[in-house]
């Protein structure tokens, strides 16, 4: 009953109310998700803001904060993925270089362990990296990852398996 009331309430939100509610609950985590994929906070913020603007425009179709979140996640993952692909192409000499190296100060705040994992993640192909970020940071199920990335659950499984295998190898070497 409480749930029903809640849903009724949410579906009566106008686009501004919905945007404000979803923004408050998820803006930071979406920017962080995009930043993990891109390693560039400025671009991550820009991509997430674009996604919110788009969500606002289609709120009368979404009408549900859960759908809105799924929509935002897909939009953000889409855009970061195409941005990553561009970077790979543009910089052919350093195909895995990333736009924003952390400053020394920021780097010092990271633990050595995090450093190793993040470094290892950089060696993964873009799709595998995306699957891993959605799984371990986004805490999404296989089905949710498949929906978000527009690929089959089987592909999610195989990307995850390959990514885990290479990460384990790299991390063991570095230990």
């Amino acid at each position: 009953m409480v749930y029903e009331e809640c849903v009724t309430h949410e579906s009566s939100w106008n686009a501004d109310e919905a945007l404000t509610a979803v923004y408050t609950a998820h803006y930071t985590s979406l920017v962080r998700l995009a930043a993990l994929l891109l390693r560039d906070t400025g671009t991550a913020e820009e991509i997430v803001q674009d996604a919110f603007v788009a969500m606002h425009g289609r709120w009368h179709r979404l009408r549900d904060p859960h759908k809105a979140l799924a929509y935002l996640r897909t939009a953000v993952v889409n855009r970061t993925r195409s941005r990553q692909r561009h970077l790979v192409v543009v910089d052919k000499h350093m195909p895995r270089s990333l736009p924003d190296e952390p400053s020394a100060e920021q780097a010092a705040l990271r633990t050595a362990e995090t450093d190793r994992v993040i470094e290892a993640m950089r060696t993964l192909p873009e799709k595998q990296r995306t699957v891993m970020v959605l799984r371990y940071y986004g805490d999404l199920s296989e089905a949710e990852i498949a929906d978000t990335m527009g690929i089959s659950r089987g592909s999610v499984k195989s990307h995850a398996a390959r990514a885990s295998k290479s990460l384990r190898q790299v991390l063991e070497q570095n230990l």
């Binding site: 803006y27 930071t28 985590s29 920017v31 962080r32 998700l33 930043a35 993990l36 906070t41 991550a44 913020e45 997430v48 952390p102 920021q106 705040l109 990271r110 633990t111 362990e113 995090t114 190793r116 994992v117 993040i118 891993m132 970020v133 799984r135 371990y136 940071y137 990460l167």
Partner: peptide, 14 residues
Amino acid sequence: MRRSLADEANRVEP
């Protein structure tokens, strides 16, 4: 993986 990605993510404060 969870710990490291969360750690890395938390450095970002939009």
